[in-house]
């Protein structure tokens, strides 16, 4: 089971498109669109949102991504009237980027709060910024590697998702070119193109393991070759 996602948009096609995009990187996550009005027009439907919340919740909770104003109001109204509002979080995030980041986090088994944090581009709860809180013992356990990116389109969405998944799997703070490598949005914002030399650094108990795993991932083309 993973945390599910609901995509609330004024447009059925936007909601379905966001689901399609996010699902490409998170096949195991239940991502349910709730776009448009009941009669297929532009607007939001309370009934569609309510049904989507039920469909997306496998027991671990649901993070909701919304587009404009009334989508948020409709989602909040559904939350107020939900049987178990404690399992629903409404993300304050851009609908496309937030959905992709949340889907990747959910796919890696993250908790409800961690998926919410990923959507909102905050570091997941256990991680700390790599430049802070470096205890001497942790600093001793650090590792780094520079890798020339061979992927045709650089670290675009799918390879970036693979990196985030790998970087999240170790007891270490991992950065790529200085940004949190467990944040999908920050990795994508780097715009790392083919041929760029990216520097991966890790600190913490499993720093060496994390860097080794990233080297292996890079050798396998970040899942693309």
């Amino acid at each position: 089971m993973t945390v599910g996602l609901v995509i609330v948009s004024h447009s059925a096609r936007i909601a379905e498109g966001v689901v399609e995009l996010a699902a490409q990187m998170a096949a195991a996550v239940e991502i349910v669109p709730a776009g448009g009005t009941d009669d297929g027009g532009i607007g939001t439907s309370f009934d569609k949102v309510q049904a989507a919340l039920t469909a997306a919740d496998s027991g671990d909770g649901v993070v909701v991504l919304c587009d404009l104003g009334s989508a948020v109001l409709t989602a909040e109204t559904a939350l107020d009237l939900a049987d178990d509002p404690g399992r629903i979080r409404i993300a304050d995030a851009p609908i496309v980027e937030g959905a992709v980041a949340a889907a990747v986090a959910a796919e890696s088994g993250a908790s409800l709060e961690q998926v919410l944090a990923a959507a909102q581009d905050q570091a997941p709860a256990p991680a700390q910024p790599a430049t802070e809180h470096q205890h001497p013992a942790d600093s001793a356990r650090s590792a780094a590697v520079e890798i020339a990116l061979a992927n045709e389109h650089g670290l675009h969405a799918r390879p970036a998702a693979e990196l985030v998944r790998t970087a999240s799997g170790f007891d270490a703070q991992v950065t790529v070119n200085g940004v949190d490598a467990t944040s999908m949005l920050r990795v994508l914002a780097l715009g790392l193109d083919r041929g760029t030399v990216a520097r991966f650094e890790a600190t913490g108990a499993q720093a060496a393991e994390a860097i080794a795993a990233i080297e292996l991932l890079a050798a396998e083309g970040f899942g693309e070759s």
Binding site: D38, F46, S70
Partner: peptide, 13 residues
């Protein structure tokens, strides 16, 4: 709440 479809639905609802 179920039928208005815009912001007025949740607000008036």
């Amino acid at each position: 709440i179920s039928t208005v479809g815009g912001a007025a639905g949740p607000l008036y609802g």
